[in-house]
Amino acid sequence: MAGTVAPPVTDPELDVEVDPDARGPLGTAFRYLAMPLLITAIIGGLYLWVQGQELDSIELRQLESSILWPRFVEHVQLSALSTFFVLFLAVPTGILMTRPRFRRFAPAVIGLGNAGQAIPSLGTLALLYFLFVAVDGLPSTGLVPVTVALVGYSFLPILRNTMVGLDQVDPSVLEAGKGMGLSDRRILRRIELPLAVPVVLAGVRTALVLNIGTAALAFLFGGGGLGVIIQRGFQLSRTPVLVTGAVLVAALALAADYLAGIIEEKLAPKGL
């Protein structure tokens, strides 16, 4: 009958009511477009707000694209580089810590990861700065020490999620793989890692957002980034400059989390 609302259906696996329209094209489009529209609204609102201010010559100079764009690119580079290295280090370490021969070392490794995140981000950067200063031949400021500090700060989420993802694989599935004649290495590659992908990628998303936020402090050690814009806003007592830097960092974190969520969804095995 025209105008009749379709009754909710029950998902037999979850035993909950599901709105049929939520699975249609409209629901899918909303799910994929909501965050880009929100980010666009945030950037657009920032632009309109800044344009509505009476900017002096100092503010106009600090808000030029020739100033903002290089700092934005530096921030993206810092976040991406540190996330790449922590992914390169934490995932293999998490895999090793779930193997029978190395499980006895897991508490110590997790303890180191906890220490890296328990220390406040500014403290981590400062400790790494003094370490690099104390060792001759190492750069004390710039990209290298900041990247190392970010890796140490975001190491735990990926490490722990990798271990949790591998440990939660059903032992009966592993036994079935062994019964099919698969070696331990093939079981890891073909069964354990694919099933652990959603949990591991959730840790990567967390680490990426942490790195983007913490990279705002990189300017204290010559690392550049959007923190330079925020710091200049404080120093010069120019609110538009300060707000612009802060909003750009927040928008970048939202965009990175959104893109990482799409990648997580696409890489997750079907049926999970």
Rank of each mutant, 00 (worst) to 15 (best):
L33S: 14
A41L: 14
R104L: 14
L38W: 01
Q77R: 14
T40G: 15
P100L: 08
T93I: 03
P100N: 03
V76N: 07
P107L: 02
V50E: 01
F84V: 12
I58D: 06
W49L: 13
Q62L: 12
R101N: 06
G94K: 00
Q62E: 11
L89R: 03
T98L: 04
I39Q: 09
Q62R: 10
T40M: 14
F84Y: 12
T83M: 03
S66F: 00
I58K: 01
R99S: 13
T40C: 08
F102W: 07
G52I: 10
G45S: 13
F72M: 12
V91A: 02
W49V: 03
I39S: 11
I95W: 01
P100K: 11
R104K: 13
M35F: 10
R99W: 01
T83K: 02
T98G: 00
L96P: 04
P70E: 09
A34M: 10
G94R: 00
W69K: 14
Q53T: 08
P70V: 14
V50I: 14
L63F: 07
I67T: 14
W49F: 09
P70D: 02
L37C: 12
F88T: 11
T93E: 00
A106Q: 03
A41Y: 09
L38Y: 06
V76S: 11
W49G: 09
L60Y: 07
R61V: 09
D56A: 01
P107G: 02
I67W: 11
R61D: 13
S66D: 08
Q51V: 14
F88M: 15
I67H: 10
L81W: 10
R104N: 09
F85Y: 06
P107F: 03
H75S: 10
L33H: 06
A106E: 10
W49E: 02
G44S: 05
F102R: 02
T93N: 04
L81D: 06
A34V: 09
L55F: 00
E59I: 04
R71S: 12
S82T: 06
S57C: 00
S57L: 04
H75E: 12
F72E: 07
T98W: 04
L46H: 03
W69T: 15
P70W: 08
I42R: 05
R61K: 10
F30V: 15
E54W: 06
P92M: 05
R31L: 09
L68F: 13
A41P: 08
P36L: 06
H75M: 13
R31Y: 10
T40Q: 02
I67D: 06
A90E: 03
T83Y: 01
R31E: 12
Q51T: 12
L33M: 15
F88A: 15
L37N: 11
T98S: 03
P107R: 05
